[in-house]
Design a binder for these strands. Structure first.
Lengths: 171, 171
DNA sequence: GGCCGACATTTGAAATGTCAAAGGTTTACG
DNA sequence: CGTAAACCTTTGACATTTCAAATGTCGGCC
């Protein structure tokens, strides 16, 4: 095989004495991480096979799809949670493929705004539909009530984490 | 600022009409993904600042720490969910730093076994303690009962996903 | 012995990722 | 006006990531 596979044994193996009421957070984190990796790998594989696209490209286009007027690169960086320097190259490649356009507005020449081309909108539309279907498929065995509950509770985790970042990221 | 930050507005912005009972899975996925990225970035930052290590290196060492006799690179690949080719370079760098040792067993020269050096064990020990503390801190605001419930329910998600992979990953 | 299929790791090309430093632009203030 | 501070993006050095193809080794089988 050429890639990491199913794994009855995986990341979670790090936790050993997690049973005794300690390290619950570590245990949860490892499970979140391995699950996320699993789903990401699957989506990446399908994006590649069916659309010849990469996951970061998909993420970036998703943001532009919702903002037809385009977004500044810094805004894109925040929304995709990708560093500034990374956005530069990402947009560059998408521009080469004719999916994205870069414009410098008249008012402020420090800024670069990226927006989807017509071609980009068409292609992303198809990818988005497929993407949503893949997720529904993958989570098909999970009770919808649980899905909803998870969304809530993970929200609580996200919120807690946001309030305890070292980088002084409050508000 | 030089990196993506807190983000009241982030990945989840992709979902628009998720309210109407459709796309719950997509909504959940985006929240899982953004939360995982958030935690990963924080851990990465702290590993870097306090230990000069990277997250993949930490993950790899974590596996070796539990198997004092060492692991074959393929086994490491599965457990860390990192591709084979990737493990090669990862171990290479750790060996350069004197944290990991590579050995070819007498019986089978196809195989390479990696194990922690004494130095590696010492350093990883310190990192593991800190790492666990960081997670407890980050999740401090989450009710322990919820933590436990999340662990269960995310297990259900992971299991469902495992059963719906395109790569024919059954067993 | 010699070959073929299975196994294990490495290599190579391209993309993504981080961080820090450098480059232009704009704004504000003396 | 002129310069310093603030802002936005790009660049450069490295590490990580994936995939596919190559390399090396072992096993069994004629």
């Amino acid at each position: 095989m050429t890639e990491p596979e199913s794994a009855a044994v995986d990341l979670e193996i790090i936790v050993q004495g997690a049973q005794e009421g300690k390290k619950q957070e570590l245990r949860l984190w490892l499970r979140m991480l391995s699950t996320t990796k699993l789903v990401s790998q699957e989506i990446r594989r399908r994006l590649r096979n069916e659309f010849g696209a990469t996951l970061p490209q998909f993420d970036l286009m998703a943001q532009l799809y919702r903002e037809r007027d385009g977004l500044r690169l810094g805004e894109l960086s925040k929304r995709t949670m990708v560093t500034n320097g990374n956005v530069t190259g990402l947009v560059e490649r998408l521009e080469t493929d004719g999916l994205v356009l870069r414009v410098t507005p008249d008012g402020d020449r420090r800024v670069t705004v990226a927006k989807l081309t017509a071609k980009g909108e068409t292609i992303f539309g198809a990818m988005a539909v497929a993407h949503e279907g893949w997720l529904r498929d993958m989570m098909a065995d999970v009770d919808p009530a649980i899905v909803s509950e998870l969304w809530q509770d993970i929200g609580a985790v996200k919120s807690s984490v946001s309030n305890h970042l070292s980088g002084g990221d409050f508000d």
